[in-house]
Design a protein around this nucleic acid. Structure first.
Length: 334
DNA sequence: AAATCCCGCAACCGCCTGCCA
DNA sequence: ATGGCAGGCGGTTGCGGGATT
């Protein structure tokens, strides 16, 4: 068994508590784990201090609780955070901030500790590489309009691969909806058809989450659209003026907007997946929040940042070299 | 091959809140 | 009303191991 973790002094440190009872600290041993598992299997969890004593564990109740919740619990999930989970974490952190336990409720099997560690190791690393604070508006915009769309793109690419056989089928519909249900309450819907009337929705129970809602109020049933974001209600939703964008980006943006603004039957024109075969980057940079009026200092960004990769692997980053060059070209024109 | 660096993550700590006597 | 206790939560630490030099 892997023994890893913080050890105050040395493994199996014995400390004297106030009541002179010997207490162990540091990594748990297999025997301790088994004792805790067996005791909880027979008596249930709770009353952790007395549980620790009754189970014969020379640990604090807190330590037992933590070990159980973060490691031994049978339904705890371990391993890589999936794309869907990453998307959820970014989305929910945008809503609730560092409310790790609350976020963890929406990722079954994931602990608050694991999510916290993910955030601190992965997300904050990106902020550092961009030379901006993780809580800064610039970085939050980068997450919302660059990172998250990238995740959606990749999730959908994976879904498209799976659905390819069905699309090729004679009975296949011209449109397709991809639903990603990441837990009991959060559902991501990606709908695509041939008319660019695509949609991206995130539902939490009866509530739909969207970038616009995240920045405004959370109670409505509202879609995030080009109309109500960058050209329409941007001030309300984001509190900043629309930033100037390059003609290239604006042309692309306008085309998509026209395509999407024609019907109330399609209330959720896709901001993220506006053009299934074209989307990667240009739509993302039409940030309604003025990302590029407060530009991130991409020019001074550290080389070899995981956000910029030449091999197309965006498992940790979301920018390839092509997109980076486009980005620099565009920002130079602003 | 050895030394060093860096990163991920398990575990600890302190603070806060809720419950109960 | 209040004090003590248990549990929950977010922040921090530092070990272990892989990557790099």
């Amino acid at each position: 068994m892997e023994v890893k973790g913080r050890v105050s002094n040395s493994p199996s440190t014995i400390v004297q508590s106030d009541d002179e009872m010997d207490l162990r600290r540091g990594p748990w041993t297999v025997d301790e784990d088994l004792a805790l598992i067996n005791y909880i299997a027979n008596h249930g969890e709770g009353r952790w201090n007395s549980l620790a004593r009754s189970a014969g564990l020379k640990r604090t109740g807190k330590s037992c609780r933590l070990r159980w919740l973060n490691y031994l619990r049978p339904d705890v999930r371990r391993g890589n955070i999936t794309l869907e989970e990453q998307l959820l974490i970014l989305e929910l952190h945008g809503r609730w901030g560092n409310r790790w336990s609350k976020i963890a409720q929406y990722l079954p099997g994931r602990t608050d500790n694991e999510i916290k560690n993910y955030w601190r190791t992965r997300v904050q690393k990106h902020a550092k590489q961009l030379k901006c604070d993780v809580n800064s508006k610039q970085f939050k915009d980068a997450m919302r309009y660059l990172w998250m769309p990238r995740l959606v793109e990749r999730i959908q690419a994976a879904a498209a691969t799976t659905a390819a056989a069905a699309v090729r089928s004679p009975t296949a519909s011209a449109s397709a909806t991809t639903t990603i249900t990441t837990n009991n309450n959060i559902t991501y819907n990606y709908s695509n058809n041939n008319n660019l009337n695509n949609s991206f929705e995130v539902h939490s129970g009866d509530m739909m989450l969207s970038p616009a809602i995240m920045n405004n109020n959370f109670g409505g049933s509202q879609s995030y659209t080009p109309e109500n974001s960058s050209t329409g209600a941007s001030s309300d939703s984001f509190g900043t003026q629309v930033s100037p964008v390059s003609e290239l980006a604006q042309d692309y943006y306008n085309n998509v907007t026209v395509s999407n603004s024609n019907s109330h039957n399609n209330p959720n024109p896709d901001y993220y997946q506006q053009a299934q075969d074209q989307l990667s980057f240009l739509d993302c940079i039409t940030s309604p929040s003025g990302l590029f009026s407060q530009q991130l200092d991409f020019h001074s960004m550290e080389p070899n940042t995981p956000w910029i990769q030449s091999n197309g692997d965006t498992s940790n980053g979301f920018w390839n070299v092509e997109n980076m060059l486009l980005f620099q070209q565009l920002t130079d024109n602003i």
